[in-house]
Amino acid sequence: MARLKKWTGYALIAFVAFYLLTQPESAAGVIQTGVGGLMSAAESLSRFVNTLGA
Results as ranks from 00 to 15, higher is better:
residue 11 A to F: 13
residue 31 I to M: 00
residue 13 I to V: 10
residue 36 G to I: 07
residue 45 L to D: 01
residue 17 A to P: 09
residue 16 V to P: 10
residue 22 T to M: 09
residue 37 G to P: 05
residue 42 A to L: 03
residue 48 F to M: 07
residue 43 E to D: 02
residue 40 S to C: 04
residue 18 F to R: 11
residue 2 A to R: 14
residue 18 F to P: 12
residue 38 L to K: 07
residue 18 F to I: 10
residue 9 G to P: 09
residue 34 G to T: 03
residue 40 S to V: 04
residue 17 A to G: 12
residue 10 Y to L: 09
residue 47 R to Y: 06
residue 22 T to P: 11
residue 3 R to Q: 14
residue 32 Q to D: 06
residue 46 S to G: 10
residue 53 G to W: 13
residue 45 L to M: 00
residue 20 L to N: 13
residue 39 M to T: 08
residue 24 P to T: 01
residue 15 F to D: 13
residue 12 L to V: 07
residue 43 E to N: 03
residue 2 A to V: 09
residue 23 Q to G: 10
residue 29 G to M: 04
residue 32 Q to P: 06
residue 42 A to M: 09
residue 22 T to Q: 05
residue 21 L to P: 05
residue 46 S to F: 01
residue 29 G to P: 00
residue 52 L to C: 12
residue 4 L to Q: 14
residue 41 A to I: 02
residue 13 I to H: 08
residue 32 Q to G: 08
residue 12 L to K: 08
residue 51 T to V: 04
residue 37 G to I: 00
residue 2 A to Y: 15
residue 12 L to D: 05
residue 45 L to I: 04
residue 21 L to D: 12
residue 43 E to P: 04
residue 13 I to L: 09
residue 18 F to G: 09
residue 16 V to L: 10
residue 29 G to V: 05
residue 13 I to E: 14
residue 43 E to L: 02
residue 49 V to H: 12
residue 26 S to F: 15
residue 49 V to R: 11
residue 25 E to Q: 10
residue 44 S to K: 00
residue 2 A to C: 07
residue 54 A to L: 14
residue 7 W to M: 06
residue 46 S to E: 00
residue 5 K to R: 13
residue 20 L to R: 08
residue 26 S to V: 05
residue 39 M to F: 06
residue 19 Y to Q: 02
residue 7 W to E: 10
residue 14 A to T: 15
residue 18 F to L: 09
residue 36 G to Q: 01
residue 51 T to E: 08
residue 46 S to K: 05
residue 35 V to T: 06
residue 17 A to Y: 11
residue 39 M to K: 01
residue 6 K to C: 01
residue 13 I to S: 01
residue 18 F to K: 11
residue 28 A to M: 06
